[in-house]
C-alpha cells in the first residue's frame, strides 16, 4: 500500500508538468455529468416522482454512484487503461520487478482530472443531503462512506476483468464499457424502477444495487426488517473484487505462457 502512494506521488508530479491541460480537462470533467444530471432534474420537474422516489432521494443515489465512478477512474486508471500497457510491452517491465502485478498496474496510471467529476458529484451529494429529512446516526454515516468505497471496488473489479481480457485480445475491450458506463447509468437511479432481470443482474452478478439502492433504503428509513443487513450490503463490493483478482491472476499466468 505504501508503494501505491509512492506511485501516486510520482505520477502526480508528472501531471503537474502539464498544468494547463490538467485544468482544462478537470474543468471538462466537471461539466460532463452535468447534462446527465440536468436530464434527471427535468424529468422530475415533469413527473414529480419515480416509483415512490423523490428528486433528492434519486439525486443522492446519482451522486454516490458518480463519486464512486470518478474515484475509481482516478485511482484504478491503471487497469482501465491496461491495453496500452500490454500492447506497448510495458507489462514485461512489471514482471521483472519484485512486487505484485496488481499494485504495479494500479500504480502505472492515475487520472487526476477526474477530480472535476468528483467535485461535481460531491456538490450534488451535499445538495441532496441538505434537502432530505434524514435522521443521521453514526451507522448511517458509515453506511454512506461504505457505499462510495465499495462502489469504487466494484468499478475497479470490472476494470480488472476488462484488463484481463487484454491478455487474449491485446486491444481493449469496449465490451467492458457496457458494464462500467452502462452500470453507472443504471445504478444512478434506484434499481426498483427497472425490469426484474435488470435488478437481479445488478444485485447478484455485478452488485451495484448493493452499494446504491439497497443501503439507500436504510439511510432513507425505507427498510422493513433487518436494518443491519441493509447497512452491510456495501460489503458485497469486496466480495465482487475477490474473484476479479483471481481471474486477473489467471490472465497473468496465461500471458506468461503465451507471451502475447
Amino acid at each position: 500500500m505504501g508503494l501505491y502512494f509512492k506511485y501516486l506521488s510520482i505520477l502526480f508530479k508528472s501531471q503537474l508538468q502539464y498544468r494547463t491541460s490538467f485544468w482544462l480537462l478537470t474543468f471538462g470533467q466537471f461539466f460532463i455529468p452535468f447534462s446527465v444530471f440536468a436530464g434527471l432534474y427535468f424529468m422530475f420537474e415533469r413527473f414529480g416522482q419515480l416509483r415512490g422516489w423523490s428528486f433528492y432521494e434519486t439525486a443522492l443515489c446519482f451522486a454516490i454512484i458518480h463519486m464512486a465512478f470518478s474515484l475509481s477512474e482516478c485511482f484504478a486508471r491503471g487497469f482501465d487503461a491496461f491495453s496500452s500497457l500490454v500492447a506497448g510491452g510495458e507489462f514485461d517491465r512489471v514482471l521483472v520487478r519484485p512486487r505484485s502485478t496488481v499494485v504495479q498496474v494500479l500504480g502505472s496510471k492515475f487520472e487526476f482530472t477526474r477530480f472535476g467529476r468528483l467535485l461535481q458529484s460531491a456538490i450534488i451529494l451535499v445538495w441532496a443531503l441538505y434537502n432530505l429529512p434524514i435522521e443521521w446516526s453514526i451507522a448511517k454515516v458509515i453506511t454512506l462512506l461504505l457505499m462510495v468505497a465499495s462502489g469504487v471496488l466494484i468499478f475497479t473489479g470490472i476494470y480488472m476483468l476488462a484488463a484481463t481480457l487484454c491478455f487474449w485480445t491485446i486491444q481493449g475491450m469496449e465490451v467492458a464499457n457496457i458494464f462500467t458506463d452502462g452500470g453507472r447509468e443504471m445504478a444512478q437511479y434506484p434499481l426498483n424502477i427497472y425490469q426484474k432481470w435488470v435488478t437481479v443482474f445488478f444485485t447478484f452478478i455485478i452488485p451495484f444495487g448493493c452499494v446504491s439502492y439497497l443501503p439507500l433504503l436504510y439511510i432513507l428509513d425505507k427498510v422493513h426488517g433487518n436494518e443491519i443487513l441493509y447497512m452491510l450490503m456495501p460489503l458485497a463490493g469486496v466480495l465482487f473484487l475477490l474473484p476479479c483478482i483471481l481471474v486477473w491472476q489467471l490472465g497473468v499466468r496465461h500471458y506468461r505462457s503465451t507471451g502475447s
Binding site: I10, S14, G88, V96, P98
Partner: peptide, 27 residues
C-alpha cells in the same frame, strides 16, 4: 518470480523504465 527478479537487472534498449515527466532522481 518475485524472489528471483530482486537479483537481476533488465534493460530493454527500446523501452524506458524511467518515468518520463519527472527528474531522473525521482525515478
Amino acid at each position: 518470480r518475485a524472489a528471483y527478479v530482486k537479483h537481476i537487472g533488465v534493460v530493454f534498449g527500446q523501452r524506458s523504465q524511467l518515468w518520463w515527466d519527472v527528474p531522473v532522481i525521482d525515478s
